[in-house]
């Protein structure tokens, strides 16, 4: 058995050297995590994930909560936005194309000046121009999945029905 033991020990030694080199000598670079659901073309698979993403974007990347505060800041509070939406897109000053809550919220995010809640416009424009940047623009740069997630989140905090379809289900495209 001597020669077998020696050949086996030699082989294990070689494998050990390679392993040692790869594990301890070269720099331990950990590849980045896969991009979060929002950044990739895929997206959240369940309503819960969609809402979680929406909340994350709302408070983080979207920077919505900077202005939309409860105690009357520069922008209207949003905790009943989905319920108030119907009154908005039926209002006389409304110039957009939305016909339901979801499309109204989508429009408000992407094209904020389509309808400005009275009192919140840029001063001197008679509430025709919104101070809010469109969320697709570079400073915020949300993609479609993220926008839909935010809409779902808004519907959820308003206590309204969530009508947003999950990405990949085909609706809303």
């Amino acid at each position: 058995m001597g020669r077998f033991a020696r050949a086996a020990a030699f082989s294990l030694f070689i494998i050990g050297l390679y392993t040692f080199y790869s594990v301890f000598v070269i720099p331990p670079i950990n590849p980045g995590e896969p991009p979060s659901e929002s950044a990739a073309s895929g997206g959240p698979a369940t309503i819960e994930e969609l809402l979680a993403l929406g909340e994350e974007v709302y408070n983080g990347k979207g920077a919505c909560s900077l202005c939309h505060t409860r105690d009357g800041g520069r922008a209207p509070a949003l905790d009943d936005s989905a319920l108030a939406a119907k009154a908005r897109f039926s209002a006389p000053g409304y110039s957009g194309k939305a016909a339901d809550v979801e499309s109204y919220l989508y429009e408000s995010l992407v094209d904020p000046s389509a309808y400005v809640v009275p009192g919140y416009g840029v001063s001197g424009t008679d509430d025709r121009v919104s101070p809010m940047p469109g969320v697709r623009e570079s400073s915020i740069g949300l993609n479609d999945t993220e926008i839909r997630a935010v809409i779902a989140y808004l519907q959820s905090i308003s206590g309204a029905e969530i009508t947003v379809a999950l990405p990949g289900e085909g609706a809303g495209e």
Partner: peptide, 17 residues
């Protein structure tokens, strides 16, 4: 440990595009 030229992403978002 720093890679001076790491792999780029597939797409870059800039200037609104």
């Amino acid at each position: 440990l720093r890679s001076a030229h790491p792999a780029p992403p597939g797409a870059v978002r800039a200037y609104g595009k």
